[in-house]
């Protein structure tokens, strides 16, 4: 297994100033992670926990007021290492779409409403490859056929397509150049259940075709269960737990993850679904200590003052909770 993207101690804040009032929103606070080539890596969490911000930083697509205060993000392509936080225009043309691509949230509006689908494909392809209009159309036609999308969409305008079709077209547009690393932000959220299934299927197909890496960001644990190999759970701008999908679903350690899993519907049991008490904190003024403590039923005094470290519970499983830390220390000393 080789690492394809690596983030270290990443801190990204929104810093705004207007009429003398300064606001700092700590949307990503000290996150470190490594994503391996060929895996499907899930990033989970409630809305407003910093998922999308993390994604922007990992993509190297951030602009003021979002500022990376500290930390590094590096892409590893074969032997080449590229700093994702300082991409030059040349870098962008080389990397984006041909190596790193992005399937956006809410694809309703990502397609230019006054441009035909084939022209959007043409714009995106010719940015990265020296091909003519006819060749670009050929590439597009072939790829859409491979993915089982009707050729008629090419001449259509976005508003003429259904929501599901638009999302599929967007996935095709994002992956047309066979990128190694694909980020997908809530790819199924605005779609109805039947369409969701098709989109998940399509994502799986696209990922497996060339063994690409897929970083999947969604609040929907069901989608994660379906697609992800590993999952990182984000809470208030921090990773609270990270493990393989099976462990997260069957044996979560962090109280927040446990809540997330309990809130999922189960077919085989009739147990009541538990929703998480309280609301996620405002990130311009996060709670002291463990950011989850105001909502945590197990919180102890320490949680209110000291921020827990993300420790390795066992290889491949990390969690940031004082209770878990104490248990681990107990187990090793006993």
């Amino acid at each position: 297994m080789t690492t394809i993207i690596e983030a270290k101690n990443l801190k990204a804040y929104y810093i705004t100033q207007a009429y003398g009032v300064e606001r700092t929103v700590q949307a990503v606070d000290n996150i470190s992670l490594e994503i391996q080539e060929g895996e499907v890596f899930g990033i989970a969490g409630e809305s407003g926990c910093g998922k999308s911000t993390l994604l922007k930083v990992l993509l190297g697509a951030f602009e003021p007021p979002l500022t990376v205060v500290d930390g590094t993000v590096e892409y590893h392509f074969d032997s080449e290492r590229i700093n994702a936080l300082a991409l030059t225009d040349q870098n962008l043309r080389d990397i984006r779409w041909s190596k790193v691509s992005y399937i956006p949230q809410g694809s309703m509006h990502v397609l230019n409403p006054v441009r035909r689908i084939r022209d959007s494909f043409y714009d995106f392809i010719t940015t990265h490859q020296q091909v003519g209009r006819r060749e670009s159309l050929e590439i597009t036609r072939k790829y859409l056929a491979d993915l089982g999308l009707p050729e008629s969409v090419l001449a259509a305008y976005p508003h003429q397509l259904s929501g599901g079709m638009r999302q599929r077209v967007t996935i095709a547009l994002a992956t047309i150049l066979w990128p190694k690393l694909i980020f997908a932000d809530e790819p199924t959220t605005a779609l109805d259940v039947v369409v969701q299934r098709g989109v998940i299927q399509l994502l799986k197909e696209v990922q497996q075709r060339e063994g690409s890496t897929l970083v999947l960001i969604t609040h929907d644990m069901g989608v994660h269960a379906n697609l992800a190999d590993r999952i990182a759970v984000l809470y208030a701008g921090k990773i609270v737990e990270e493990a393989d999908t099976r462990t997260i679903l069957k044996n979560p350690r962090h109280p927040y993850t446990q809540y997330l899993i309990k809130s999922l519907p189960h077919l085989d049991e009739r147990a009541e679904r538990v929703s998480i008490p309280g609301r996620p904190p405002a990130l311009d003024n996060p709670p002291t200590g463990c950011r989850f403590h105001p909502r945590c039923p197990l919180a102890i005094d320490k949680c209110r003052t000291i921020d827990p470290d993300l420790i390795t519970v066992r290889p491949g499983h990390r969690a940031a909770c004082h209770l878990v830390t104490e248990e681990v220390i107990h187990a090793t000393t006993a």
Binding site: T16, Q17, A18, Y19, V21, R23, D284
Partner: peptide
């Protein structure tokens, strides 16, 4: 601008 002006 009104939003970003609001007091924290």
């Amino acid at each position: 601008t009104r939003l970003s002006r609001m007091q924290v």
